[in-house]
């Protein structure tokens, strides 16, 4: 578990340093994810079991990690009270439309590849 956490943190740290050094508009953890993915590809085998277990443990409880930031909604209650209608509609309708559009595009592209 400790080697796995160290690997995750090292990739994140390298990602943060790269993002700042090169002025990239991409968050450091995303660059860290790409780094870890490339390392796993270069390794050529399955990911170490410890890393797999730690990654699954984190990702199975991903929702918990959003909670502290989500509670920040208490800072924006006046804004929510004012704009609740456009916000809810944009999020609800926008998300449904985006799921439908993404699915349609994927279907069309996959069909063309097979056909």
């Amino acid at each position: 578990m400790i080697p796995a956490i160290t690997a995750l943190l090292t990739c994140q740290l390298a990602g943060e340093v790269l993002a700042r050094a090169l002025g990239l508009p991409v968050p450091g953890p995303v660059i860290g994810m790409v780094l870890l993915f490339v390392l796993l590809l270069l390794r050529g085998r399955e990911a170490p079991t410890g890393l797999g277990a730690t990654a699954d443990g984190l990702l199975n409880n991903l929702g918990l990690l959003f909670v502290p930031a989500g509670v920040g909604v208490v800072l924006h209650l006046p804004l929510l009270a004012r704009d609740w209608a456009p916000l809810s509609l944009a999020v609800l309708a926008g998300t449904l439309a985006a799921i439908a559009a993404t699915g349609r595009i994927a279907q069309a592209l996959l069909r063309r590849r097979q056909g």
Binding site: I5, L8, L9, C11, Q12, G15, P27, G28, P29, V30, G32, M33, V34, L35, L36, F37, L40, L41, E46, A47, L51, G52, T54, A55, D56, L58, L59, L62, L64, L65, F66, V67, P68, A69, V71
Partner: peptide, 23 residues
Amino acid sequence: AQFVHFLLGPATVALAVPLHRQF
């Protein structure tokens, strides 16, 4: 609560593992 919040970074990096599994 920032200690829970902090784990978002490592969790983002960890997404590489399922991606590699399904590669």
